[in-house]
Design a protein around this nucleic acid. Sequence first.
DNA 1: ATGGTTGCTTAGCAA
Length: 255
Amino acid sequence: MKLASWNVNSVRARQERLCAWLAERQPDVLCLQETKVTDDDFPFTELARRGYVAVAHGQRTYNGVAILAREAPSEVQRGLEDGVDDPQHRLIAARVGGVRVASVYVPNGGEVDSDKYAYKLAWLARLRAWVERTARPDEPLVLAGDFNVAPRPCDVAYPEAWESSVLFHPTARAALEPLFAWGLADVLADKTPEGGVYSWWDYRQLAFPRGDGLRIDLVLATAPVASRCTRAWVDRDARKGKLPSDHAPVIIELS
DNA sequence: ATGGTTGCTTAGCAA
């Protein structure tokens, strides 16, 4: 089983690229973030033609998440369902092939000490509560998505330069800890303890050719899934060429 | 401190 996660930065702008990538990599499951379309405008038909059933939790202009799979996802949950009045659509979960899969888009946070950053930290606390409420560490669960946080210094090409950023601030990293402590493993990190693997490069200032990347797209899994992982990698090729997403897909393979 | 780029929406925001 091959499971992937990709922040496509608009599913409409990336539709051609997405379809070509699906044909090339043929994942069994793909979690999408930043689809930026309402479910009415989501390209269900085009994806079905290519062999994928999609479930989506989208909104206009911003955010939006989806799960694509070769077999229809079941037991679909949209949002954190914690009673908080939050219009931002950042999580969808479903059962796919015996694994509970969540596509997660953690808030970016803007600038440290801003309202957006407070929302980011609060959202991560709500995500932890959602995990604790809806799953157990001994059950197969995957959280895949754009966490907008690089967990380790070796996940950042220039850690000193990024330390004050919302993507690598100590308080943002600390907000991930409870997820790890609960029983989620950072699958790709465990396969690459030396680091140097990145999934996002800013569009500006030639960040990609300069190698100024961060690993902020994560696949977190409970032990029953993580123990089956034979390979985990970032498909950097998907960041190349004309008009790419600013993120590259993360892929894990399970025995 | 600012601006660099892309996407959505059409001036300005979010990333």
